[in-house]
Amino acid sequence: MDPSVITAFTPTGKLRASINLGNPILVNRHPETGEPVGVSIDLAHAFAKRLGVELELVIFDTAGKSVQAVSEERADFGFFAIDPLRGEKIAFTAPYVLIEGFYLVRDDSPIKTNEEVDQSHNRVTVGKGSAYDLFLTRELKAAQIVRAPSSPAVVQTFLEQDLEVAAGVKQQLEIDAQKTTGLRLLGERFMVIRQAMGTPKRRGNAAAAALDAFVEEMKASGFVTEALRRHGIAGASVAPKG
């Protein structure tokens, strides 16, 4: 690794990874130790090893806060869904995993298809600052968006405020739906969330290119596939090359 690239990634002497605990596909708390574990954590450690530097995890409870930390250079890289708004300040790699976004409704809801969601009488709750918040803010023309404090709080907000639709990562919605009877997911995804690594654009093109090359190597080598298997993650697929 070019020494100038290592310097670009470690202005404080350590490699600071911005970690979002709001996406259970990528990060969870270990049930015994409470330490963050998951695919993102494995990739963060592997990248620090590649640079030959010490890793520091900077933990956040929402995607919005995690993105902001990298945008403001309070962290050196992070793990985010690719989005044009975030891309104004963050240089993204190609995605390393693909995750599906789904809608959830009550069993007795008249809504049967995704096309029926975007109606003026529907209120759709999303995690504030999440990938699907950004996406649906652009895409929904008639439905009202209600923002929950975080992605894990979406279904709780949906239930407490008696809203018509909840939107989020399929696996998170399924986990929450199991805790409450009378809920169902619609039959098809409304978006594919492309999870990538990213670093502040101010770190330069060489740093961005090095991070992208690292992601491609981790996919091609089977590292990402093995990490998904090791952490028991279903419903996410390794992104194709590039």
Rank of each mutant, 00 (worst) to 15 (best):
V169M: 12
S151C: 07
S109I: 01
D133N: 12
A94I: 07
Q144P: 04
G168T: 11
V105Q: 03
H121S: 13
T180F: 14
V67W: 05
D176Q: 09
T157N: 15
T113S: 14
A166V: 14
S150D: 09
I90D: 01
V155L: 05
R106I: 10
T125W: 03
Y96T: 09
E72I: 15
A143E: 04
F158M: 09
G64P: 07
Q119P: 02
V97T: 10
A69H: 00
A143Y: 01
S71E: 13
K141S: 11
V70A: 00
E160H: 08
T93Y: 05
A81T: 10
K112Y: 04
A143I: 12
A177R: 15
I82T: 03
G87L: 02
S130I: 09
L159N: 01
Q156G: 05
S151M: 15
E100S: 07
Q172I: 12
V97M: 06
Q161R: 13
P152V: 08
E115I: 08
S120N: 12
S120E: 15
L136V: 07
E188P: 02
V192T: 15
V146R: 03
P110T: 06
R147S: 11
T157V: 14
F135T: 06
P149G: 13
K112N: 05
F79R: 13
Q144R: 08
D83I: 01
G78S: 15
Q172H: 14
Q161I: 03
G127L: 02
G87T: 01
E115S: 09
A81N: 03
I145L: 15
S130N: 06
D83P: 05
F77W: 07
A131M: 14
V67Q: 10
G187S: 11
T93I: 08
Q161A: 14
K128D: 03
E115L: 10
T125M: 05
L104C: 01
Y96I: 08
G187K: 11
L159C: 04
G182H: 12
T180N: 14
Q171T: 13
V70S: 06
A148C: 14
H121K: 11
I82P: 00
Q161N: 07
L134M: 02
R86F: 08
A167S: 03
D76G: 04
I82Q: 11
V154K: 03
L98F: 09
V154A: 02
D162A: 15
A166K: 09
A131D: 10
D176L: 13
F92T: 00
P110V: 07
K128H: 08
S71M: 14
L136D: 03
A142F: 15
A94S: 10
G101T: 05
S120W: 13
S71Q: 14
F92K: 00
K128L: 13
Q171G: 02
R74L: 12
V154Q: 08
G127E: 04
D107M: 12
L104A: 07
E174S: 10
T113W: 05
Q119D: 13
F80V: 02
S151L: 10
R74W: 13
L186K: 03
L85E: 03
T157F: 13
P110R: 05
T157W: 08
A142I: 08
Q178G: 15
V165Y: 01
V165K: 00
E88N: 03
V67C: 02
L185I: 07
G182L: 14
R123E: 11
A143D: 04
S120D: 15
L185Q: 07
K65C: 09
F190P: 02
E160S: 12
D162C: 11
R138N: 08
V126Q: 01
V169T: 13
